[in-house]
Amino acid sequence: MSTRWYPIYQKGNPQLRVFLPNFWMKIVQPQAKQLPNVVQFHCSMEMTKFDIKNYLEKIYHIPVVDVRTKIAIGKFRRDVGKGYVIKDDDVKTAYVVLPKDMKFEYPDIFANKKDDAEEEQKALGDAKKNFQDYLDRNKHRTDVPSWFTI
């Protein structure tokens, strides 16, 4: 877009119009216990409270009563090998308040997850089979390197 940078706020009309917004939002599990009508989001750093409200109302058709935001600074840590300082990205968190009668509970995605051991067995079987195939393929040409193939 020729207007891909965030436009400056000007008093009066016409107000800011966004043709193809490239903002992103994602729902996250709240760390602290929240009221049933409060949803916690992570969103693009440039989004304002008004942007968040408009985004949810216009794109997702979700009624929004109030939005509160905070910016959490990313952690500073040292690289394990070289020791230089790494800074994690800052995160903008939005607490969106829905109307009183609406409830949202973060779903348990992995509730009916299949047994991990079974999956691992399957992966191991696949790996074994692939290796056997590889051996069979090169059985009659022991003196040729394995990369020499079509």
Partner: peptide, 13 residues
Amino acid sequence: DLMEFFDVKKNWG
């Protein structure tokens, strides 16, 4: 709905 932020239920897990 807010469930639009999640994948369809059959893809969970």
